[in-house]
Each structure stands twice: as structure tokens, then as C-alpha cells.
Computed example of a mutant assay.
Amino acid sequence: MPLSTVPYAIVVEDHPIIMMETTHILEDAGFRVYESFDGDEAIAHLSQHWESTVLLFSDVDMPGSLNGFALAWHVAEHWPLIEIVIASGHISPEKGDMPEKATFITKPFNHRMVHQHLNQILPDDKKPEPLKKAV
């Protein structure tokens, strides 16, 4: 896959170790990753780079004016072509917490769990080549 067609994922996570691990998992899946430590920073990035971004992977509980659920709603409303995965080890979504198109994954997660989840939810045209071969 030519570098220009490698899709971006944005990871929103305020814990540095979890950010590093999530970034590594998504890079192994073939994404180029932009890291953001809160929802406000993620929205600022997406407002300029939404066209190359195919995935938002966000924690629920984080600093800033938006938690992961509010960020998911904002992204679904403003950039509906971006796929959304929300993760938490402390909070489970209730009905109405997330947009219908968003999916949830429980922490702790590992490479295999994330890759399987992404293979299930991402349309083929949004999957990087390594992810297509991962399962």
C-alpha cells in the first residue's frame, strides 16, 4: 500500500502507557496514528485532518471538556465517515451514551482483541492491508 493511502487513526487517551500500547497496536494493524491526550485536542486535529482519518479510538474518562462519549457524538455528527471505537475498563456504556455507529471495547485489551474488533467493524475499504491479514 503506498504511503499516501495509509489511513490515519486518532487515539485519545490520557494515560501515557496505555496511549503507547494502543498506538503500537494500531500501527501494527497498518494505521498511521495521531495521539491526543483529550477530546478538545482531538477535535482540533480532526477539524484539519478529518479527510485522512478513518478511525477514532478513544478512552471514556479523560481530562478536558469532553469525555469519550461526548467526543464520539461530536465526531459522528461532524465527520460521519470516521469509524468510532470507545474503550474503558471502568465504565460500560448505557443505551444512548454512544452514537449508534460507535462500538465499545473493554480494557484491558490486547493486539488480537483490537485487531479482531477492527476487522469486524471496519468496512474493507477502510482497513489497512496488515489488518486484513491479521486474523
Results as ranks from 00 to 15, higher is better:
M1R: 11
M1P: 11
M1S: 15
P2W: 00
Y8L: 12
A9C: 12
P16K: 07
M19S: 12
M20I: 09
E21T: 10
E21V: 12
T23H: 09
T23E: 15
H24V: 11
H24S: 15
A29S: 15
F31N: 00
R32G: 02
R32P: 09
Y34W: 13
E35Q: 09
H45K: 10
Q48W: 06
H49S: 14
T53N: 06
V54W: 05
V54T: 14
V54A: 07
L56F: 01
F57M: 11
S58T: 14
D61I: 14
D61R: 15
D61K: 15
S65G: 12
N67F: 01
F69S: 01
A70Q: 14
W73H: 15
W73S: 04
W79R: 08
P80S: 11
P80I: 04
L81D: 13
I86Y: 02
S88G: 08
G89W: 04
H90F: 12
H90K: 13
S92F: 05
P93M: 02
P93T: 02
E94N: 10
K95E: 15
K95L: 13
K95M: 10
K101F: 02
T103E: 02
T103F: 05
F104G: 01
F104Q: 00
F104A: 01
I105T: 06
I105F: 08
T106Y: 10
T106C: 06
P108I: 08
I121H: 03
E129A: 13
P130S: 04
K132L: 11
K132A: 14
K132I: 12
K132N: 09
K133Q: 14
V135F: 13
